[in-house]
């Protein structure tokens, strides 16, 4: 099967600055992948390229063999690192809005998750706490039957109990054909659910391996290795 995401010599320059340089990467289906790196290492740039919000300076990025565009947006469910909804809308209206946009959105699944997280669907997004707003966005993104979920810092603002619930949701919802790409700084919290980790350093991939290979080879957790590799 062709990789769900593939980069060939992918380069993105902002002026003279290389945000990404010559990245070769291939993500298989059915994996949960952690995209890890310090601030400014190129994580969000890579994610924006995958979603067609930026265009490469050089090289290619392909989703399921296609350049990012309307066809790939159908199969990619993307959670940006900032709020992307109109805060005046009520949660239930946001749900209808998403159902309108995406044929693969499951209202039933979203309702179930919102109930479990005790979110009032009649409230406006603005009226919810910051953590609850993040939960709503993540719930909507995870309620699509997508081939690729791209989550940019999904769990930063939510409490540990909700974090556990969300990770569980990711584990039980993603199918064998879909891949989840998660960028985060909270490595300890998600390490156990990852198949694979990618370390980005100054716009280049410095490590691309499995969690258990890291533990076998270095005798330490991904979090501990991260702290060592990116020591300030």
């Amino acid at each position: 099967m062709r990789p769900i995401l593939e980069c060939q010599k992918l380069t993105k320059k902002y002026g003279n600055f290389f945000a990404l340089s010559n990245v070769d990467l291939s993500l298989e289906r059915g994996k949960i992948v952690g995209l890890l790196g310090p601030n400014g290492s190129g994580k969000t740039t890579l994610i924006k390229l995958a979603n067609g919000l930026l265009t490469p300076t050089e090289g290619h990025i392909m989703i399921n063999g296609l350049e990012p565009g309307p066809a790939t947006k159908k199969i990619v469910s993307y959670l940006p690192d900032h709020s992307f909804f109109n805060g005046h809308m009520k949660v239930k209206h946001l749900m209808a809005y998403y159902a309108d946009f995406y044929r693969n959105f499951s209202t039933e699944r979203a309702l179930k998750m919102l109930d479990a997280l005790e979110i009032d669907k009649d409230k406006r997004l603005n009226a919810l706490s910051k953590g609850a707003q993040e939960k709503v966005q993540l719930v909507l993104v995870m309620s699509r039957d997508a081939d690729l979920y791209i989550l940019d810092e999904p769990i930063g603002g939510v409490d540990p109990a909700a974090r556990d619930y969300i990770l569980r949701t990711i584990l039980s919802n993603y199918s064998e054909n879909s891949t989840v790409l998660i960028s985060t700084h909270l490595i300890t919290d998600i390490e156990q659910v990852l198949d694979h980790v990618i370390f980005l350093q100054n716009g280049q991939i410095s490590l691309n391996t499995s969690v258990d290979e890291i533990r076998t080879e270095y005798g330490k957790s991904v979090d501990a290795l991260f702290r060592e590799v990116f020591k300030c």
């Binding site: 949960i32 556990d164 569980r168 039980s172 156990q192 659910v193």
Partner: peptide, 13 residues
């Protein structure tokens, strides 16, 4: 899948 969710680990693991 159920075991993985229960343990909160990746199903492939």
């Amino acid at each position: 899948r159920d075991l993985a969710v229960d343990a909160a680990v990746n199903p492939n693991t």
